[in-house]
Design a protein around this nucleic acid. Structure first.
Length: 121
DNA sequence: AGAATGACAGGAA
DNA sequence: GTTCCTGCCATTC
Protein backbone atom coordinates (compact mmCIF):
# COMPACT_ATOMS: atom_id res chain seq x y z
CA UNK A 1 0.00 0.00 0.00
CA UNK A 2 1.30 3.40 -0.87
CA UNK A 3 0.25 5.25 2.27
CA UNK A 4 -2.04 8.02 1.20
CA UNK A 5 -0.54 11.01 2.92
CA UNK A 6 -3.22 13.34 4.23
CA UNK A 7 -4.26 15.32 1.20
CA UNK A 8 -4.51 18.44 3.30
CA UNK A 9 -1.77 20.04 1.30
CA UNK A 10 -2.88 18.89 -2.11
CA UNK A 11 -3.22 22.50 -3.15
CA UNK A 12 0.13 23.18 -4.65
CA UNK A 13 -1.26 22.84 -8.15
CA UNK A 14 -3.62 25.79 -7.97
CA UNK A 15 -2.47 29.34 -8.46
CA UNK A 16 -3.72 31.93 -6.00
CA UNK A 17 -5.53 33.59 -8.88
CA UNK A 18 -7.52 30.46 -9.63
CA UNK A 19 -8.25 29.99 -5.96
CA UNK A 20 -9.63 33.49 -5.75
CA UNK A 21 -11.80 32.98 -8.79
CA UNK A 22 -13.20 29.75 -7.44
CA UNK A 23 -13.97 31.33 -4.10
CA UNK A 24 -15.77 34.20 -5.78
CA UNK A 25 -17.76 31.73 -7.87
CA UNK A 26 -18.70 29.79 -4.76
CA UNK A 27 -19.96 32.93 -3.10
CA UNK A 28 -21.92 34.03 -6.14
CA UNK A 29 -23.50 30.59 -6.20
CA UNK A 30 -25.24 31.12 -2.87
CA UNK A 31 -28.90 31.64 -3.69
CA UNK A 32 -30.84 34.61 -2.41
CA UNK A 33 -32.32 33.88 0.99
CA UNK A 34 -29.66 31.24 1.63
CA UNK A 35 -26.45 31.49 3.65
CA UNK A 36 -23.16 29.64 3.91
CA UNK A 37 -20.25 29.66 6.31
CA UNK A 38 -16.74 30.71 5.38
CA UNK A 39 -15.70 27.11 5.68
CA UNK A 40 -18.54 26.00 3.41
CA UNK A 41 -17.50 28.46 0.74
CA UNK A 42 -13.91 27.30 0.97
CA UNK A 43 -14.91 23.64 0.61
CA UNK A 44 -17.24 24.35 -2.28
CA UNK A 45 -14.37 26.18 -3.95
CA UNK A 46 -12.24 23.07 -3.61
CA UNK A 47 -10.15 24.64 -0.86
CA UNK A 48 -10.95 22.78 2.35
CA UNK A 49 -9.46 24.28 5.48
CA UNK A 50 -9.14 27.75 4.12
CA UNK A 51 -12.03 29.61 5.69
CA UNK A 52 -9.67 32.41 6.61
CA UNK A 53 -8.69 32.84 3.01
CA UNK A 54 -12.34 33.44 2.16
CA UNK A 55 -12.52 36.05 4.89
CA UNK A 56 -9.36 37.68 3.66
CA UNK A 57 -10.75 37.92 0.16
CA UNK A 58 -14.03 39.37 1.31
CA UNK A 59 -12.27 41.94 3.45
CA UNK A 60 -10.44 43.20 0.37
CA UNK A 61 -13.23 42.69 -2.12
CA UNK A 62 -14.69 45.75 -3.79
CA UNK A 63 -17.18 44.06 -6.13
CA UNK A 64 -20.51 45.66 -5.28
CA UNK A 65 -22.43 42.80 -6.89
CA UNK A 66 -20.89 40.11 -4.72
CA UNK A 67 -23.42 38.75 -2.21
CA UNK A 68 -20.94 38.99 0.67
CA UNK A 69 -23.73 39.27 3.22
CA UNK A 70 -24.70 35.62 2.71
CA UNK A 71 -21.46 34.43 4.26
CA UNK A 72 -21.53 33.82 8.01
CA UNK A 73 -19.43 32.05 10.59
CA UNK A 74 -19.88 28.34 11.04
CA UNK A 75 -22.12 28.89 14.04
CA UNK A 76 -24.40 31.14 12.00
CA UNK A 77 -23.27 34.37 13.60
CA UNK A 78 -22.38 37.48 11.68
CA UNK A 79 -18.64 37.87 11.68
CA UNK A 80 -18.54 41.60 12.37
CA UNK A 81 -18.65 43.07 15.88
CA UNK A 82 -22.26 43.57 16.92
CA UNK A 83 -21.83 47.32 17.24
CA UNK A 84 -20.21 47.86 13.85
CA UNK A 85 -21.94 49.47 10.86
CA UNK A 86 -21.01 46.47 8.75
CA UNK A 87 -22.90 44.25 11.13
CA UNK A 88 -26.03 46.35 10.80
CA UNK A 89 -25.61 46.45 7.05
CA UNK A 90 -25.30 42.68 6.75
CA UNK A 91 -28.25 42.19 9.04
CA UNK A 92 -30.39 44.48 6.94
CA UNK A 93 -29.37 42.86 3.67
CA UNK A 94 -30.17 39.40 4.95
CA UNK A 95 -33.54 40.41 6.29
CA UNK A 96 -34.29 42.10 2.98
CA UNK A 97 -33.95 38.64 1.44
CA UNK A 98 -36.28 37.10 3.97
CA UNK A 99 -33.60 35.57 6.19
CA UNK A 100 -34.52 35.37 9.85
CA UNK A 101 -31.74 37.07 11.78
CA UNK A 102 -32.01 37.18 15.57
CA UNK A 103 -29.37 38.49 17.91
CA UNK A 104 -27.01 38.78 14.98
CA UNK A 105 -27.26 35.15 14.05
CA UNK A 106 -29.03 32.84 11.65
CA UNK A 107 -30.18 29.31 12.33
CA UNK A 108 -28.10 27.07 10.08
CA UNK A 109 -29.84 23.85 9.07
CA UNK A 110 -27.48 21.10 10.31
CA UNK A 111 -25.49 19.24 7.69
CA UNK A 112 -27.58 16.53 6.08
CA UNK A 113 -24.56 15.47 4.11
CA UNK A 114 -25.18 11.88 3.20
CA UNK A 115 -22.56 10.69 5.67
CA UNK A 116 -24.67 10.63 8.81
CA UNK A 117 -27.54 9.39 6.70
CA UNK A 118 -25.39 6.66 5.18
CA UNK A 119 -24.13 5.51 8.56
CA UNK A 120 -27.20 5.93 10.73
CA UNK A 121 -29.90 5.82 8.11
C1' DA B 1 13.22 34.62 9.52
C1' DG B 2 9.86 35.23 13.38
C1' DA B 3 5.79 37.42 15.35
C1' DA B 4 1.43 39.47 14.92
C1' DT B 5 -3.02 39.76 12.73
C1' DG B 6 -7.63 38.45 10.64
C1' DA B 7 -15.18 39.14 8.18
C1' DC B 8 -12.43 31.41 10.72
C1' DA B 9 -13.48 26.30 12.75
C1' DG B 10 -14.09 22.80 16.09
C1' DG B 11 -13.74 20.85 20.29
C1' DA B 12 -13.21 21.32 25.31
C1' DA B 13 -14.73 23.26 29.67
C1' DG C 1 -26.84 27.65 25.78
C1' DT C 2 -21.83 30.09 26.79
C1' DT C 3 -16.77 31.19 26.77
C1' DC C 4 -12.00 29.69 26.06
C1' DC C 5 -8.35 27.64 23.65
C1' DT C 6 -5.84 25.54 19.91
C1' DG C 7 -5.23 24.79 15.04
C1' DC C 8 -5.30 26.90 10.54
C1' DC C 9 -3.77 29.68 6.36
C1' DA C 10 -2.20 33.93 4.01
C1' DT C 11 -0.46 38.49 4.67
C1' DT C 12 2.03 42.08 6.70
C1' DC C 13 5.37 44.02 9.68
Amino acid sequence: MIRARPIAKARGNMTPMDAHERILRAIRAIQQGEVASYGDVARRAGLPGRARMVAQLLSRNDDIDLPWHRVLRSDGRIAFPADSPSHAEQCARLRAEGVDVREGRVRMHPRENGLDHAIWG
